[in-house]
Structures are given as structure tokens and as C-alpha cells.
Simulated assay, not measured.
Amino acid sequence: MDPTPLTRTRPSTAEVSGTDRPRPARHVRLDYSRTRQRRILLHPEAVVVLNGTGAAILELCDGRHTVAEIVSELGTRYRGVPEEEVRRFVGRLVARRWLELSDG
């Protein structure tokens, strides 16, 4: 019997560097819900209602900004934006295939 599983689980977090440039995957769209009065992430399986921090990060995930630039921009808006937390958040969305990365 082959010990290799038939299905593979996706990693919970992808490795993200400061030079990566995240952007929404083709099947994902950042939008605003008037009903919920919040930013939402639309993808084929569901709608994700974002908190303020998640929305602020995703608004900058346009394929032009590097992760380091996103952290810097958020640092000018808010105090104390930990780069590692932004990288983990982006990494989780990459692992779910909601964001894609291109090299800086």
C-alpha cells in the first residue's frame, strides 16, 4: 500500500518576502458592501467580510506595491504595524489562492 496520501493539503501560510508584490488572484475581487458597510473580498466560494486592518492591507495589494512598501504605507497611517503580521496575513491569502505574488 502506498503511504502517499491521495489528496494534498494546502499549507496554512505561504512564505512571503518583503520584495514580493501581492495582487488579487484573477477570480478574486475586493469590493465594498453597502449592506455591511465594510470592504469585502469576493471569490467563487464565498464572500469574506474584512476588518479594517485586512481591508487596508488588501487595498495596497495591487501588484505594484511590495510587501515592505505596504508595511511602510500602513506605518504612516497607523502606529506600530508589525511587518511579520502583514507577511503572515498575505501568506495566508496566498495559501488560499486569493492573492498571487510576483517577485520585486
Rank of each mutant, 00 (worst) to 15 (best):
L30I: 10
Q37H: 06
V28M: 04
T13R: 12
A14E: 06
V28G: 01
R10T: 15
I40E: 06
L30P: 01
T35W: 02
L30S: 07
R10G: 10
T19Q: 13
P5Y: 10
T7L: 15
R38H: 11
P24E: 12
A25G: 05
T19G: 11
Q37C: 02
A25Q: 02
I40F: 06
R10A: 15
R34T: 12
P24N: 11
T4A: 15
R38G: 03
R29N: 02
T19S: 14
R39T: 11
I40Q: 05
H27Y: 08
Y32V: 07
T7M: 12
Q37A: 13
A25E: 06
G18K: 02
R36G: 03
S17C: 03
T35I: 05
T13D: 08
S33V: 03
G18F: 00
D31P: 04
P3M: 08
V28F: 01
E15S: 12
R10M: 14
S33K: 01
L30Q: 05
P3N: 11
R23H: 13
T9Q: 12
D31A: 14
L30F: 07
R26N: 11
A14S: 13
P22F: 02
T9E: 14
R8N: 11
R26K: 14
P5C: 07
D20P: 00
V28R: 05
S33I: 00
G18C: 05
D20Q: 00
E15W: 11
D20I: 03
P11L: 11
T35G: 04
D31C: 08
Y32L: 07
R21L: 08
T35Y: 05
P3W: 10
P3V: 11
P22A: 07
R34D: 12
R38T: 08
T4P: 03
R29P: 00
E15P: 03
T19C: 04
S17D: 12
A14T: 10
L30R: 05
V28W: 04
T9W: 13
T9G: 09
I40Y: 03
R23V: 10
R38V: 09
R23L: 13
H27A: 11
T7E: 12
Q37G: 01
R21I: 02
P5N: 06
R26A: 14
L30M: 05
T13A: 10
L41P: 01
P5E: 09
R36W: 05
T7G: 12
